[in-house]
Design a protein around this nucleic acid. Structure first.
Lengths: 206, 206
DNA sequence: ATCAAGTCTGAAACTTGTTCTAGGTTAGCG
DNA sequence: CGCTAACCTAGAACAAGTTTCAGACTTGAT
């Protein structure tokens, strides 16, 4: 079990203690507001007030609402990765394990649908100026999936499958959040796409 | 030249000629502005001015910027479906044909990346209030894919695969638009996911 | 042709994300 | 300790999406 550092690395300047505390307060306020009313409920003035920080300071920490919400997602994702790690999926094949893991994540999101809404909307709405942060979220998601697969050295075909799984995961979440797909439908979609993994797995009997 | 109604059916009241003309002007202005600077360049005041309509009227026709852009997408999609139909894909298997068709659509989008940006961002940012319209876009996309497959009666497994393909298509477009994936990468993703179809196709030799 | 109902217009107002400014505070350093 | 650069605060100001409203114009039915 080596360091998981790289994930959060904020190479800039190492932030004093009070600054770290401010950052935490901001992220907490963001998640709290998002948890209530979703994307729209996260209003920058409210976040500032709620985290006892001036509006200008909020913008110094997070240069836009999208940045803030994507950072919130990074935060939550890290937490979730930790949680998921604790109880590894029990499926027979890598595909089953990935599906199981994603469904567990999905169930977690269902408990906070508004928060999920805010984070996912921000993620897909993000433009180029947020690329690094969004990429970071993507890497974290990939890590979770690879973890679930439990294959030390994924083949290139499997990596492609993982990319497609991530696409499906994000897009399925969106259709669920906007009320165009049921929970059951999301489940089917995830299971369908996860089959792609086993189809390229050298060790899975078919 | 008969009507292509069904797709655009606006059951409300049947719009007079001048109203139809207004609607067209608005959509044209929207596409034009989007074609320049993407999502941000489509400013409601400018759309109104550019289409010779009062701001209030614009909002009567399209209750939000998102509605407007999603409608713009419906419009473009219809056009594209027509174009694609003219020259059917040549691939051997359904999966190859779908991949070919989507790549053709993708190339069309590459010619107007800003327009693509505006439409796709609107589509994924849309909330519940736009569900009917977004659903319509989704149905149209499904129709294009089924068309390309060339299978009269898709199996349930194939329909699931089509859903996953749509997810991948949307999400891959987003990663491309936000500069996080190359054109080549999108191609790989599409080809990867399209394999799902053949794997469930009763007539494809494997 | 006339009237009522429904539309459209122009302009102002309101909301929320974002930027800017002037002055006060903090942290690190000599 | 005292300085300086960086940081923080309160609040005004600006930008673009959305709402509202009074008055002018169209339309359809009589």
């Amino acid at each position: 079990m080596e360091k998981v550092e790289a994930a959060t690395a904020r190479p800039a300047s190492p932030l004093t203690e009070r600054q770290e505390a401010r950052r935490r307060r901001i992220l907490r306020a963001s998640a709290q507001l998002a948890g209530r009313g979703g994307f729209d409920a996260v209003q920058m003035r409210e976040v500032a007030e709620s985290s006892q920080v001036a509006l200008g300071t909020l913008y110094r920490y997070f240069p836009s609402k999208i940045h803030l919400l994507v950072a919130t997602m990074q935060d939550q994702l890290e937490h979730m990765h930790g949680t998921l790690r604790k109880r590894p999926p029990a499926g027979e094949t890598p595909g089953e394990r990935v599906a199981e893991t994603l469904m567990r994540a999905f169930r977690a999101l269902q408990r906070e649908p508004h928060l999920a809404d805010a984070m996912v909307r921000a993620l897909t709405f993000a433009d180029r100026s947020v690329s690094p942060e969004v990429d970071q979220v993507s890497r974290q998601t990939t890590a979770i999936i690879l973890d679930a697969m439990g294959r030390e050295h994924p083949t290139p075909a499997q990596l492609s499958a993982v990319r497609v799984i991530e696409h499906t995961w994000h897009s399925a979440l969106i259709t669920w959040l906007s009320g165009r797909a049921s929970i059951a439908q999301v489940k089917v979609d995830i299971e369908t796409v996860c089959r792609l993994i086993d189809l390229t797995d050298p060790e899975t009997p078919r």
